[in-house]
Amino acid sequence: MIQERINKIAKEAESSLSSVQTTADLELWEVKYLGRKSELNEILKGLRDMTPDEKKIIGPLGNTTKQTLFRIFEEAKNTLAEKSIDWEKERIDVTAPGTLHTFGHLHPITLLENEVQDIFSSMGFTIADGPELETEHNNFDALNFPADHPARDMQDTFWLEEDKKSKEHHLLRTQTSTVQVRFMEANKPPFRVIVPGKVFRNEATDASHEFAFHQFECLMVGNEGEVTVATFKYVAETFFSQFFGKHVDVRLRPSFFPFTEPSFEFDISCIICDGKGCSACKQTGWLEIGGAGMVNQKVFEAVGYKRGKYQGFAWGFGLTRLAMMKYKIADIRLLMSSDLRFIRQF
């Protein structure tokens, strides 16, 4: 019976392969069992003379056997090839350093700005941008800082030398709130917008003061009654809880900014001690973060909105301060130092 012959060949081939030790022996084995003149090949060649019933059985069996033999041949070949390698000669010191490939580092302020943007974007806020070189109008007048008012002393300003002919006074913006004016002049409520940016204060530097630093402005305006002090508390709490990855409480204290009414200073529960009191929060349980308030109706009027129609909050906080808190940077001047020993840690 042909079937039996095929099975016998298979058995014989498998057992003889197990005794093959050298590449030469394996080549002989290959000729004998898989070669053109091998017994199995001869049988398969004879297929065309067989009856259809025989073909149905012998054909598949023959082919499967051939595949099996080919597979075990390949395995044996790989095993032999592997055996011939001198692994010790190949050995490398895997503890030696990898080929140098450097990545650059983004500035911590940029990293933080991205993080803050992502949280606000997820709450539907748009990101706006504005110039650093501003007019007195946008930085002060339109924000309800009256001319000749001591409120202007709250922010030491860098003024530009003006040409005698120029009507407008220019300055380096002291706050990102200037973009409030620009944005509102171009858009109608409702809107939610955030403005990251660099601001300038004309004051000497020390470990906690810098004359150029980064701020974040957040402005949300709707119809009267839609965006309230309670909304502000919610947005602020949500933002900080997301940012610090744990629940954070917000505390509002009365304050004064010409462009908001009511105005607040806002503190967050200390992220280090969770409000129990520690050295970071000077035992108060709270960290001072920034100023906020409900947009003054006079600012709305200055950008052409009808008094009393809209209502919303504005708040600003220092990205620089947030970076110092997050990364525990003790000296603010490092942020503008451009020292790569500092930058490369982020």
Partner: peptide, 26 residues
């Protein structure tokens, strides 16, 4: 309103999510 708010204390204002249409930022 600011005088009333601060006399009462802003801690009496609960954090409340706004009831507004869900719009994506541009």
């Amino acid at each position: 309103i600011e005088e009333i708010g601060r006399m009462r204390g802003y801690d009496t204002v609960p954090a409340t999510p706004p009831l507004l249409p869900l719009t994506p930022g541009t």
